Simulated scan of single mutants.
Amino acid sequence: MKDLWLHLVHGKPIERHNQGSVEQANSNIKDMLTAWLSDNNTRDSSLGIRLVQNQKNSSYHSRIKSTPYSTLLGENPKYGLSYTSLLQEVIDCLETEDDLAALGAQPPSDPTDKPLEASEPVIITPQPS
């Protein structure tokens, strides 16, 4: 799990005076994940670690005068449904998280539709306005 979402640094850093900051960073991430698990009454750390990673990567750092995300990628993180592949008409109809969850649970509307296999290409054609 940590190899996919977060790389915790173990061992001694190249410069000995940085050891404390490495240990502090590891402890901080562990504390954030523990708090998230407790607040959400869950043991699903695979979801929590993604949220902690997002929080760490989008937090402003005075030393670099930016966030790690924007420093690495040159732009701010994109949040919200408008950055998903949902059509705007669908987004406009959603009122609650339950509406969104129900949308994901709906079977295909056309009986010939089937779930895509991982190897199938996805072709998106513009819809006429």
Rank of each mutant, 00 (worst) to 15 (best):
L8D: 02
A101G: 06
D98N: 13
D113T: 11
Y60F: 12
Q88D: 12
D92H: 14
K65C: 03
L51W: 02
E117K: 10
A102V: 09
D113K: 14
Q55F: 10
A35S: 08
K30V: 07
S66W: 14
Q55A: 07
R63P: 00
D98F: 01
S58I: 11
L8T: 04
Y83N: 13
T34K: 08
I49F: 01
S21M: 09
E97N: 13
D31S: 15
V52E: 09
S70A: 13
L33P: 01
S59K: 10
S129M: 03
E97M: 03
T112N: 11
Y79L: 03
L116I: 01
S62Q: 10
K65Q: 07
R16K: 14
S62H: 14
P126K: 15
Q88L: 03
D113Q: 15
P107Q: 02
L8W: 01
N76V: 02
Q19Y: 05
Q24N: 04
D110Y: 15
Q88I: 10
L103Q: 04
D3R: 15
V90A: 15
E95Y: 12
P68N: 13
G48P: 03
E75A: 08
V90L: 09
L8N: 04
P68R: 12
S45E: 15
I14A: 00
Q19I: 07
N18T: 02
D99K: 14
A118N: 03
Y60D: 09
C93Y: 13
E95I: 10
V90S: 04
T112H: 13
E117C: 07
E75Y: 08
S109L: 09
N40T: 12
E15L: 14
N18P: 00
I123F: 02
S58E: 01
P108T: 12
S38G: 11
E120H: 03
D110Q: 14
E97C: 04
L4T: 06
A105R: 12
S59V: 12
Y60S: 03
H7L: 01
S27V: 10
E97Y: 00
P126A: 15
G80L: 10
S62T: 15
Y83P: 05
K30I: 01
N40K: 02
H10Y: 01
Q53C: 05
E23P: 03
S38W: 11
S45F: 14
L51R: 00
D113A: 13
E117L: 12
V22D: 06
N28Q: 01
H10E: 07
G74H: 09
W36I: 01
Q19F: 04
H17C: 04
H61P: 06
P107L: 06
P13F: 08
V122E: 02
D31L: 14
L73A: 03
P121F: 05
A118M: 13
D3M: 13
L72H: 00
N26D: 08
L103W: 04
K12T: 00
L8H: 08
P68H: 15
T96G: 05
L33R: 04
W5M: 04
A118Q: 14
L73D: 05
A35F: 06
A101Q: 06
T71Q: 08
V9R: 02
P77W: 05
P128Y: 07
H61Y: 10
V22S: 03
T125Q: 08
M32T: 12
T42F: 05
I14L: 06
